[in-house]
Structures are given as structure tokens and as C-alpha cells.
Computed example of a mutant assay.
Amino acid sequence: MHDHSVTELPSLRRQKILLILERDGKVMASELSQHFAVSEDTIRRDLAELDNAGLVQRVHGGALPRPKDSGKDYFTRLEESDEVKVRLAQLAAQKVEDGQIVLFDSGSTALQVACSLRADIQITAVTAAPMTAIALSEYKGVKVILAGGQLNPRTMSASGHEAVRMLAGIKADLAFTGVCAIHPEVGVTSLHFDEVPVKQALLDSAARVIAVTTADKLGAVEPFVVASCTRLHTLITERHVASGSVEDYRRLGIVVEQLPD
């Protein structure tokens, strides 16, 4: 399926690269160079332009999709808690059982899970996110522990040594994490460098980690690596997944649960 229109406009070629990326979940410069019958340098320039426009994430030898909502602030993401996110959170919240110690990551997804718990649930909840702590405090049977430190206004969560040390000192049954991006090979990645140690402490402190994510974050990569996918036990996502097959995650031993139609 070669495309030999060498005189093709760069803008048209870049549009086609985005379509191939959407289909395959990853593109390699060497393969694109053959496909379009242009030099690898030309393709690298295309990928650099697409990266500058925020449309792809450059990686060694090629490019990956960029998550659609990366870089938006916490409150913008919160307002966008659409029906899909609510349904994902409700499915995730069913995993919580009485008597458990449960860690809630920062972010709008984990907050949504906190708001979706059974009304009479009896757990100890731990979080570094004040708004999630406030939501959890509404439940009579929930004891809330808030990890402290400097508040990051982008993530509305505490970061730093104190938060990490406290999370590391807890042995929890369950942790809920919403992910900025997750890729089968690269792992769970974040847009924010300073939240990486807190996220790592959270994942390391839980016997079971449940990642809750919309489909656009699957197969995507952000600059800072948090952990390999093998740290996750369960991945809860949408029924229809565009980029990156859920089978890639199942092959890694992760239990993938998708919303019913």
C-alpha cells in the first residue's frame, strides 16, 4: 500500500500521518518514509511540526498519540467530567469493600471515584488531594487521612517529601489512579514532574492498583515515566477504544474491564 505521490503537499502528508497514527497507535519514521516514498529526514520534519503543534508525542524513531486533554488545569478537567467518566468511576467504585484501606490519587478521575462510593461504605481513605479528602469526608463510615506538603495548583494535590514519606508508610488494599497517559511499552506517564514521586509511592503502597481511564489516554505518552504497566492490576476503560488495543494490556497480565454498551 505505497503512496508514490512524491509531489504531495506536506500538509496533506501530515494529515495522513495522523490518520495512520490513529489506526496503529504508533508510527515509525522508517516505515513512513517507505510508505510515502520520501526521505526519513522529510518524515522527521513532519513529525517535528506535528509535535510542535501538540498533535503527536515524538519518541525515538517515530511518534505516539498525544492525550487529548493533557495540560488542562484541574478545574477545567473537573468541568469536563462527562457521562463516560462518571460511568467509569461508578464501575471502579464497586471494587471497594468494607474494612479496606484505599488510596486515592490526585486528579478528577479519582475524585469522581470517591464521589461514587456506596453511601454506607466503611473504609479508611488516604489521599494527597484536598478536594478528594473533602468529598470522602461526606461519608459517615469513611475515615480520611490527608497526606500533606506543598500544594501543586495544576494538580490540586500535595507533593514533596512529606507526602511521599507518609504514603510509603501505608500498606493499603487498593489504590485508584487516573492516568495522564498509558502505553504498553513505555508504561504510565505524567505531564507533571513533581507529582511522579507521589504517584510512585501511591502505586507501591497498594496491594492492588486500579487505573481508571478514558480511551484517548491509551497508547499515549507524556514526558515523565511513573511506572511500568505491570504495576497495574486492573484497567477500567471505555467499551470502544480507538488507539492501542486493550489486548496489549491483557498480554501484560492486566485485567481489563470495559464499560458495557
Rank of each mutant, 00 (worst) to 15 (best):
Ala168Cys: 06
Ile170Leu: 12
Ile170Val: 10
Ala172Phe: 04
Ala172Asn: 03
Leu174Arg: 02
Gly178Phe: 02
Val179Lys: 02
Val179Ser: 05
Ile182Met: 15
Ile182Cys: 13
His183Ile: 00
Glu185Asp: 15
Glu185Ile: 14
Glu185Lys: 15
Thr189Lys: 07
Ser190Val: 01
Ser190Met: 07
Leu191Gln: 10
Leu191Gly: 08
Leu191Glu: 06
His192Ile: 04
Glu195Gln: 13
Glu195Ser: 12
Pro197Tyr: 09
Gln200Met: 07
Ala201Tyr: 00
Leu202Glu: 01
Leu202Gln: 03
Leu203Ile: 09
Leu203Thr: 01
Asp204Lys: 14
Ala206Val: 06
Ala207Asn: 13
Arg208Glu: 08
Arg208Cys: 10
Arg208Met: 05
Ile210Gly: 04
Val212Phe: 09
Ala215Thr: 11
Lys217Gly: 01
Leu218Met: 11
Ala220Phe: 03
Val225Cys: 12
Val226Thr: 00
Val226Gly: 00
Thr230Gly: 13
Leu232Ser: 12
Leu235Ala: 05
Ile236Pro: 08
Ile236Val: 08
Glu238Ser: 12
His240Asp: 13
His240Tyr: 11
Val241Asp: 07
Ser245Val: 00
Val246Gln: 07
Glu247Val: 04
Glu247Pro: 04
Glu247His: 09
Asp248His: 13
Arg251Trp: 05
Val255Pro: 02
Gln258Asn: 12
